[in-house]
Every structure is written in structure tokens, then in C-alpha cells.
Design a protein around this nucleic acid. Structure first.
Lengths: 109, 109
DNA sequence: CCATAACTTTAGTTGACACTTATATAAGTA
DNA sequence: TACTTATATAAGTGTCAACTAAAGTTATGG
């Protein structure tokens, strides 16, 4: 979930995600939409999105087709919702809990 | 909105946001929750959150009290919702539109 | 006014990250 | 097999972001 948020922080990646939201597209088609950036850069963005589980890759011959993993977005949405609304009454615990949170999320990077 | 997403990409800042979600807290109290980071660092995080309009600052004597701006979070939520659901039928336009988007958001940084 | 408290701001360092160019790999095609 | 197409991966570069330490700012209390 941390990875997803980080991935979405980059505007270019949001654009890519939107492109493959409702249809599967090969890497080339995606890269072609961007004029001021190399295929290589797009390929790397795709890797990040895939790592964050925001897109799914399917191979077909030499091509790789990508499409958005809408479920992860849904999960992210409810994560954000929960993150702020749930457990706010036990605020005294948040400090330790969140600090632990820091360490584990950082450790996972 | 871009700033808000970027601000939230950093786990430490999410923790801070959660701390001031339902109550106002002075900078010192916030900083005290984190052991492996300086007050200075927290101060800088607070500045980023404030810049992104995710928190609000109120001065009282020498203290500065912070609280979350829940409205911005609400806006972010609906932004994310809209971002993917709306306008997906006009996918042919997305490329140009989003590329323009890139340039303006980047220019604003 | 001077000291202290509560913060921020500045300067400098380090690591991460988006990018480019060049090279590698893998699958079709002549 | 050699060539091409579609793509990733490697290596290197410049910029930006998070951090520390130190100096600066603003209000309050002797």
C-alpha cells in the first residue's frame, strides 16, 4: 500500500495508469503517447507500477500487454478511508503504533 | 492536489497527519512522538503538509498548534475517485490531455 | 533588556529517483 | 541463421527530497 501511494505520487505514472484503466495496451502504444520521454523511461515506470501491483502484465509473443489492476486502487481507496477514520479514539496508542509502522515500511523498501 | 499526493507518499507525514487528525497539537508534542528524528525534520514535514493544505497552523504565544485539514483529504478522495472513473469513454483524448497535464504540473513545481 | 522556550530556517550531505544512452534478451520472420 | 521487432535492463547523470547541526526568529518572564 505504501508502494502504491509512492507510485501514484508521480504524475507521469498516473497518466499511464489512466491509459490502461479500461483497456489493455502494449508497452509501445503506451510509450507512443509521450513525446518528451524515452521508451526506456516508460518501461521503468511500468516496472514501478507493476511492483506496486497497480498494473498487471500479460505476455503475448514479443509484446507485453498491460492493464490496470483496479482492485488495488479500490484497496488503496479504502485504506485511505480507514487510515484516518478508524481507531481515532485510541489516539494515545498511535505514537508507538505509527513509529513501529515507520520502521517496518522503511525496512521493506 | 498533486502536492497532497506527494506529501502523503512519505510515511512519516502520514503518521503526523493522523496525530493531528482529531485534535490540535503543538509542534513539540508532535516531534516528541518520534524518537529517531530531529525536531527540525518534523518542522520541515509540517511545512510540507501545510503547503499541501493538509494541515492548518494556528499560533498561540510562542507555540504553533497544528490540526489536520480534513476537507483537503475529502477533496483528495473524490479527486482520486473521479480521476479513474470519469471521462474514461473519451480515452482517445487522454494522451494529449495528460501530456499537457504533465507539463503544467511539472511547471508548477 | 536579557534569558529562555518554542519553533523555523539555512547550509550542507546523502540517498533516492526520473531520466538518457547503450546493451541485452526474447520471439517472430526471411 | 541472420535480421527485425518489442521490450527490458545496465550504467551513468542531474535533480530533488529527507535529514542533521547550527543559527535565526518571536514571544514571554524575570
Amino acid at each position: 500500500m505504501d508502494a502504491a501511494l509512492k507510485a501514484l505520487a508521480e504524475p507521469r505514472r498516473r497518466t499511464i495508469l489512466r491509459l490502461v484503466w479500461s483497456q489493455e495496451l502494449p508497452a509501445t502504444d503506451i510509450a507512443d503517447r509521450f513525446r518528451d520521454v524515452t521508451r526506456s523511461a516508460i518501461s521503468q515506470h511500468l516496472a514501478v507500477l507493476k511492483e506496486a501491483d497497480l498494473i498487471v502484465e500479460r505476455r503475448e509473443g514479443t509484446r507485453r500487454l498491460y492493464r490496470a489492476n483496479t482492485q488495488t486502487m479500490a484497496e488503496l481507496r479504502s485504506f485511505l478511508d480507514d487510515y484516518w477514520t478508524s481507531g481515532l479514539e485510541r489516539l494515545r496508542d498511535v505514537a508507538e503504533a505509527s513509529e513501529a509502522d515507520e520502521r517496518t515500511t522503511r525496512g521493506r523498501e
